[in-house]
């Protein structure tokens, strides 16, 4: 109970009795209030000083205050370094005695010094911490022309505030067959509040035979809510590629969020095995409406539109496939 009653209040007789019982040991404590100093040689002076000084009226011009501080300083408690805060208005400014230090700066003793700089074992509070984030931005079923597809797009990081190891993965399985799958591991270094340089490796598992790339790029936030990535890749066999990605969160409410996304891939040369041609390869745009039951769990519905361009489009048409497709999607956005 936090009641600090200053005057007795109408409580039961029992309360009074209990009070008396508790009062006994406490008054004993009170009588012993200076017991703590008993082992210090200077201690006996202390009550005396209290008596003589009468804190309330204490004039700081009195040299005795300095003497007293020194005396008690030897007592080993950091002494009577009384802060005279509550006794103000005594005009320290005019007080320019021989003592170079003002009364609120007592002389130091070896005991003070020992107390001030205790020997510590190595220990650093509030140091660096390792954090991480793994986001499945897309984990969804797509209603494709030639069946059903499972599509994922995930990214995450582990590290500190400036340097982080980034991972990215995206892929698609259609009718139980992996159409495309890739994984990237990139070292990211913040070059400003809003931009990271990233560089590392990308491994494609599909389409075609596995392909390894080196990747380098920049990612960041050009304005609030817009996440962008631009990454250039150099692959085996002299292939090169550039990918631009962006997504934005539009708050219809604080839980119902519309997310436009886009991904554009460009290629340096033709690669018939994997169905890509040089130049602008493909553009994918999506619009997903999610509901954040919690920040970390948000089911969504949406639509994606995908189009192949140039040589890539030609290759698809040659195989009898469409170069453009719109799909309805349903999925879950998760993060850990």
């Amino acid at each position: 109970m936090a009641a600090l009653r200053k005057f007795p209040t109408p409580t039961s007789r029992a309360a009074a009795l209990a009070a008396a019982l508790v009062a006994a040991p406490l008054s004993a404590l009170g009588a012993d209030e200076h017991a703590g100093h008993a082992r210090h040689p200077a201690a006996p002076a202390e009550p005396m000083a209290h008596g003589a000084m009468d804190h309330g009226e204490m004039g700081h011009g009195d040299e005795a205050s300095d003497d007293m501080e020194m005396q008690h300083g030897q007592g080993g408690h950091g002494g009577m370094r009384m802060d005279h805060g509550t006794h103000g208005g005594t005009g320290h400014a005019q007080r320019s005695s021989a003592v170079s230090r003002p009364p609120n700066v007592p002389a130091l003793t070896d005991a003070d010094r020992a107390a001030a700089f205790p020997v510590l074992s190595a220990h650093s509070p509030h140091g660096r911490s390792l954090n991480s984030f793994l986001l499945f931005d897309k984990l969804e079923y797509q209603d494709a022309d030639d069946g059903s597809a499972l599509v994922w797009d995930a990214k995450g990081w582990i590290g500190g505030n400036v340097d982080r190891l980034w991972v990215r993965s995206e892929g698609e399985r259609t009718n139980g067959r992996t159409e495309r799958a890739e994984f990237q591991a990139l070292w990211g270094h913040a070059i400003g509040p809003w931009w990271d340089l990233v560089g590392g490796l990308r491994q494609d598992f599909k389409p075609g035979s596995p392909q390894t790339w080196g990747g380098f790029g920049i990612q960041g936030m050009p304005f609030y809510g817009l996440e962008t990535e631009v990454t250039a890749y150099l692959g085996e066999g002299g292939q090169s590629s550039l990918r631009l990605e962006g997504d934005y969160s539009l708050l219809l409410t604080n839980r119902l969020i519309l997310q436009p996304t886009t991904e554009i891939n460009l290629y340096g040369r033709n690669d018939r095995e994997r169905g890509v041609g040089s130049g602008l390869g493909d553009v994918e745009a999506g619009l997903r409406l999610r509901y954040e039951f919690t920040r970390q769990f948000a089911p969504y519905l949406g639509v994606t539109w995908n189009r192949l361009y140039g040589e890539s489009g030609d290759l698809a048409r040659a195989k009898g496939e469409d170069d453009e497709e719109t799909r309805f999607v349903a999925g879950i956005r998760l993060w850990f």
Binding site: M1, A3, L4, R5, K6, F7, P8, T9, T11, S12, A14, A15, A16, A18, A19, L21, V22, A23, L26, S27, G30
Partner: peptide, 19 residues
């Protein structure tokens, strides 16, 4: 200080008993 100390004890005891 003496007064204040005693009334405090009272407050404590009363609270404890009520509980």
């Amino acid at each position: 200080c003496k007064t204040s100390r005693r009334t405090f004890v009272k407050g404590l005891a009363a609270g404890g008993l009520l509980a």
